[in-house]
Nucleic acid binder design. Structure first.
Lengths: 223, 223
DNA sequence: TTTTTCAATTGATAAATGTCAAAAAAATTA
DNA sequence: TAATTTTTTTGACATTTATCAATTGAAAAA
């Protein structure tokens, strides 16, 4: 089934084929181009998203046009826009940073499945608990670390969670990296420069290569 | 039933008396004194908390002994320590700021109820979604507002959500107010001083009175 | 009450980070 | 290709916020 990725974190793993079919009945797969908005903050919608392919950024549009990128989602990730069972208003914007294919699942169908399969409710709750814990630790990083620590963390996040390679071609601009790390683009550039001068990273065009991961880990911990 | 508070946000509202009894069978009400720890970050436990009386602070213990108070919980609030269906490890510490009475509910019992009453799963999910949205907006405030804005927000939060009165006696120290607002205690004191000088608030002992709420709202929005 | 301890306040200074403007580089369009 | 626009980078400077030390005030213990 389209959105069913075989791994431990997939919330659909407890569903039967029949149940999966019910959830995603009409092969409702949508394609988005780069920069297209998938979910728009403050609008109302009743679907949740399951990413099939590509990468998207999840961000909050703050006051004064200042964005905060909360996370990047990719293949197999499931995300509800903050309105799930709670008024349907989306609390963040999601937009494609590479071409995206995803399934839109009607939120109402989720709860209909609970009576048939209550393990599924547990999976959904686990998903939310994890998201919660992630937000808590992100909040601490953003508030208690100096800029180098935050940039180091962003780079490690991209390596470990998104590109899964210490050498990757970035789908994000410097501005967006800054929005992930809670600083201005100028500050971000300066810190990347420092990392380059210390031979911690290397850049080539829009690519970044992490040369000294241990140092980066140290900076992210103590920064 | 002890923890059942009649209001819209209570997650137990969909449960029958029998179901509630199952959840909280042995009148497992615990009392905590001021400063006592109810849940300790990084320890393992399988219960969730329902507050019956008193106030507690929910906070993350960051590196270098720097705390971030995420929120204050009181009567009727339900909270899981971040380990719910997810390894049981607590991701934050909860400790009493006034004498607290609360129920400890075994997390395993929650999922057993899902098959009987799947509306309950929806309520739990709604609770998590709300918590999520709260964390997102808190994250934006902490990162995108200047100190006066963050202090104003903290004061309004205490007025509206905790004490429900524009005049209240504080159960929190300046240090703790600072930990809610992500700044040092010295900075917090200076800003309170400014607010006093501008006749926005008045303090008497450990009490605070909000004199000019509109200005405070403006500061919290634009600060 | 006096002493002791801890929290709150104030001031001087340093460090972190942002702002603004300009230059350089890269990407798009004509 | 050349021209244009956008993004990235750099520098000088301003602002915000933290740190450190000293002082005051208030609560708890003797």
């Amino acid at each position: 089934m389209s959105c069913f990725i075989e791994n431990d974190t997939n919330i659909f793993k407890s569903l039967s084929h029949k149940e999966l079919h019910f959830l995603i009945d009409k092969k409702q797969q949508i394609r988005y181009n780069v920069r297209e908005t998938i979910i728009k903050q403050n609008t109302s919608s009743t679907f949740v998203i399951c990413m099939r392919d590509g990468l998207a950024k999840v961000y909050i549009e703050g006051e004064k046009g200042k964005n905060l990128i909360v996370k990047i989602i990719g293949r197999g990730d499931f995300i509800s826009g903050g309105g799930l069972f709670n008024g349907n208003v989306q609390h963040f914007t999601i937009s494609a940073i590479t071409p995206v294919t995803c399934c839109l699942i009607d939120a109402g169908k989720l709860s209909s499945l609970f009576s048939e399969n209550n393990q599924f409710a547990v999976e959904l709750l686990r998903n939310h608990t994890k998201q919660n814990n992630y937000l808590l630790s992100k909040m601490v990083s953003l508030t208690q670390k100096y800029m180098p620590g935050r940039v180091a963390e962003t780079l490690l996040y991209l390596k470990n969670d998104i590109y899964k390679n210490s050498k990757f071609t970035l789908d994000l601009s410097r501005q967006e990296l800054a929005e992930m790390s809670n600083m201005t683009k100028e500050s971000l550039v300066r810190i990347l420069q420092q990392f380059k001068e210390s031979n911690i990273i290397k850049t080539h065009g829009s690519g970044i290569e992490i040369l000294d991961e241990n140092t980066l880990i140290n900076i992210s911990k103590n920064g």
